[in-house]
Amino acid sequence: MLVFDRGSVARHRARAARDLARHDFLFAEIAERLVDRVEDVNRTFALALDLGCHDGGLGRRLRAAGRIGDLVSADLAPAMARLAGGKALAADEEWLPFADHAFDLIVSSASLHWVNDLPGTLIQIRDALKPDGFFVASMIGGGTLTELRQAFLAAEARIEGAASLHVSPFVDLRDAAGLMQRAGFAMPVVDLETITVTYGDAFALMRDLRGMGEQNALAARRRRPLQRETILALAEEYRDRFGLDDGRIPATFEIVTLSGWAPGPDQPVPKRRGSATHRLADALGTDEITP
């Protein structure tokens, strides 16, 4: 299914590349957390791929951490790839132009949530990893911008008598775990973190979303501009429903992080069911109760 208009995603990113440094705080925070995940692995990686690299912030942090050798950066928007510098190219996450078993490490920060065929992309990523290669990615999760979503629906219904989608659907934790298993990753781990940012008003939030290239790119999005009255009602609904005591408004970002390994011959595997030689109750020092 074509949920997202990939051409719009590319255009949004190209425009955001002009002034990304003023709006990249969320990307920077996610990148810092991803580097921590890579540093948790007691290994160095000779060749890494930063998929959906934006301006290369994640790649620069990985180099500074000293955990990678060479780095390839790829982004859907050529303007973003140019900002990353080094060995950079424009590439579509849905059609990876890399040979099988090319990379020791693939990382992706705040990019894969715009992919239509996420299962297919994850399979391509697994194939592009060398045996026992590591993959870790953070993407925007299902509860992101729940405040903006609710305010939009209420404002449009009140002013125009109907509502349309303005905030994209994002993957949730359970779906992400299933996708990693379906893609064939070994030892997959999926977890969720929440980042809450406060703004002076809804207009400041929407300026940041545009500045990051994260505005609405749904294929079935509303094409005609919003009425001025609807936009004003949006800001009012947002403040009335979610306003804080200090007069600011919160914006919730859920970050789903996926990690896993390309299958390799030396990886640990679970033993055959029923092959245990010791009782768990003995190890825990408890009595086993049989129903």
Results as ranks from 00 to 15, higher is better:
residue 1 M to W: 04
residue 1 M to A: 15
residue 3 V to A: 08
residue 5 D to W: 03
residue 6 R to I: 11
residue 8 S to L: 15
residue 9 V to A: 04
residue 14 A to M: 03
residue 15 R to S: 12
residue 16 A to Y: 03
residue 25 F to K: 10
residue 27 F to L: 14
residue 30 I to W: 12
residue 34 L to G: 04
residue 36 D to N: 09
residue 39 E to W: 04
residue 40 D to F: 10
residue 41 V to F: 02
residue 42 N to E: 13
residue 44 T to N: 07
residue 44 T to D: 11
residue 48 A to I: 11
residue 49 L to G: 06
residue 49 L to Q: 05
residue 50 D to M: 00
residue 50 D to G: 07
residue 52 G to L: 04
residue 54 H to D: 14
residue 55 D to N: 11
residue 58 L to Y: 03
residue 65 A to Y: 09
residue 66 G to V: 05
residue 74 A to C: 00
residue 77 A to C: 02
residue 79 A to N: 03
residue 84 A to G: 06
residue 86 G to V: 00
residue 89 L to G: 00
residue 91 A to Q: 10
residue 93 E to R: 10
residue 96 L to R: 02
residue 103 F to S: 06
residue 106 I to V: 15
residue 106 I to Y: 09
residue 106 I to G: 04
residue 106 I to D: 08
residue 107 V to Q: 05
residue 107 V to R: 05
residue 108 S to L: 01
residue 108 S to A: 02
residue 109 S to I: 07
residue 110 A to N: 08
residue 110 A to I: 10
residue 113 H to N: 05
residue 114 W to Q: 10
residue 115 V to F: 00
residue 117 D to I: 10
residue 119 P to F: 08
residue 120 G to C: 02
residue 122 L to H: 02
residue 129 L to F: 08
residue 130 K to R: 12
residue 131 P to A: 03
residue 133 G to R: 08
residue 135 F to I: 09
residue 135 F to N: 07
residue 136 V to D: 05
residue 149 R to F: 05
residue 150 Q to F: 03
residue 154 A to Y: 05
residue 155 A to C: 04
residue 163 A to I: 01
residue 165 L to M: 13
residue 165 L to V: 14
residue 165 L to N: 13
residue 170 F to Y: 12
residue 171 V to F: 01
residue 172 D to H: 06
residue 173 L to F: 00
residue 174 R to T: 14
residue 175 D to M: 13
residue 177 A to D: 14
residue 177 A to V: 11
residue 177 A to W: 07
residue 178 G to K: 00
residue 181 Q to E: 15
residue 186 A to T: 10
residue 186 A to E: 15
residue 191 D to V: 05
residue 194 T to P: 10
residue 197 V to H: 13
residue 197 V to E: 11
residue 199 Y to T: 04
residue 205 L to M: 09
residue 207 R to C: 03
residue 210 R to Q: 09
residue 211 G to T: 05
residue 215 Q to K: 14
residue 226 L to W: 09
residue 227 Q to R: 15
residue 228 R to Y: 07
residue 228 R to V: 10
residue 229 E to F: 08
residue 230 T to S: 11
residue 234 L to R: 12
residue 234 L to V: 01
residue 236 E to L: 10
residue 240 D to I: 06
residue 241 R to T: 06
residue 242 F to C: 07
residue 243 G to M: 04
residue 244 L to V: 04
residue 246 D to C: 02
residue 247 G to S: 09
residue 256 V to Y: 11
residue 256 V to S: 00
residue 258 L to H: 02
residue 258 L to Q: 02
residue 259 S to F: 00
residue 260 G to F: 03
residue 263 P to I: 02
residue 265 P to I: 08
residue 267 Q to F: 02
residue 271 K to H: 14
residue 275 S to K: 10
residue 278 H to R: 15
residue 282 D to T: 09
residue 284 L to F: 01
